[in-house]
Design a protein around this nucleic acid. Sequence first.
DNA 1: TATTGTTATACTCTATAACTATA
DNA 2: TATAGTTATAGAGTATAACAATA
Lengths: 166, 166
Amino acid sequence: MPRQTPVPAAERTPQAQLSEAGLHAIVGYQLAQATIVTDQVYDEQVGHDGGLRRVEYTLLALVKANPDVSARQLARALSVTPPNIAIWLDRLETRGLVARTRSASDARVQHVRLTEDGQQWVAHATALLLQAEQAALAALSPAERAILVELLHKVALSRKRADKGG
Amino acid sequence: MPRQTPVPAAERTPQAQLSEAGLHAIVGYQLAQATIVTDQVYDEQVGHDGGLRRVEYTLLALVKANPDVSARQLARALSVTPPNIAIWLDRLETRGLVARTRSASDARVQHVRLTEDGQQWVAHATALLLQAEQAALAALSPAERAILVELLHKVALSRKRADKGG
DNA sequence: TATTGTTATACTCTATAACTATA
DNA sequence: TATAGTTATAGAGTATAACAATA
C-alpha cells in the first residue's frame, strides 16, 4: 500500500518520525504530545526523586494565589474528585507545606493556606519551572509562547460544568 | 491579606474562578487545564462505557497512518514503555482491531497493521472527534485552532531523547 | 435535603526487573 | 553484547460508594 503523496515533514511524531496524518489536527492529541515535553521539564527540575508531584505543585501554587481557598474550590479548579483532593492535601499537610483551618462562617468548609515553608517552596519551584520551560521551548519565540498560553487558556475556559470536581 | 491589584479576569481558573497568578505563564499548567476539555470531548464522543481508551485510539490512528509500524516505534512516538505498549496492543488484538506479524528481515520485530474493523473504527472516531472538538472549541476561530495546533506541534518537537519509549 | 469533607476500597494505569528470541 | 518483545509484579493514581458533620 504505497503512499500517494509524501507525508509533510512537519506532520511527524517526535522521536519515532511516524506520520500523524489524520491525528495532526486533533487538539487532544497535540496536547498529549506537548505535555510529554513539559512533564519532562517538571520531572527534571522539580519532580526528581523525593520531589512533589505535578498536582501537588499546582495545588500549592493555587493556594498561594488564593489564600483560604476551600478544598472544594481546588477540586473544581483542577477537576480532581473531592476524595483525591483530601489525599493530596493530607500529604502536603504532613510535609508541613499547607495548613487547614475550619471556616468561622460555615463549619463544613476548610480554609487552606500555605505555611512559610510552602510559600518558599512554591516560589522557588515556579521560578525554576519558568526558566526551564523557556530553555526547553527555545524553538518558540517569546511572542509565540505568549500566544500559546493565551490560546490554551481559551481552550481551558471552554470546559463544561459536568465535571469531577463537582 | 487584601490584594493590592485586582486579578485580571482572564487569568482565572475555569469553574472555580481562582486566581492563577504565577501559574498563568507556566505552559505545563495551561496544557493540563486545556487537556481537561479535550478529555471531556473524547470521553463523551468516543470513550464512553465500553469504548476505547485515549491511548488505544491514538495507537490505532498511528498504525493507520503508518502500516507495519513496529511496537518499538509506537512506544517511542507515544512515550509509553515497551511493556505497556505490549499490553495495549494485546487488548487491541483481542478486540480484532489490529494484527501483528513477524518481520521477514528481522524476526525480532513485529509489524502492526489495522484490521478492516480497525480501519473503520478509527476513521469513524477521528471524524467524530474533529467535529466535536470544533464544536467544543468554538471560542477559537479556525485560524486560532490552526495556530494552536502548530504551536503545540512545535512544543512536541522539543522533546528530548532520554525518554520512556527508549 | 443538600453540601463539605473524609474514609474505605476496588480498579486502572504505569514502571521496573527479568526473561526469550533473535541479531 | 545489544535489541525487540514479552511476562510478572509492585506501586502510584483515580474513581465510586458510603459516612459524618453542618447547613
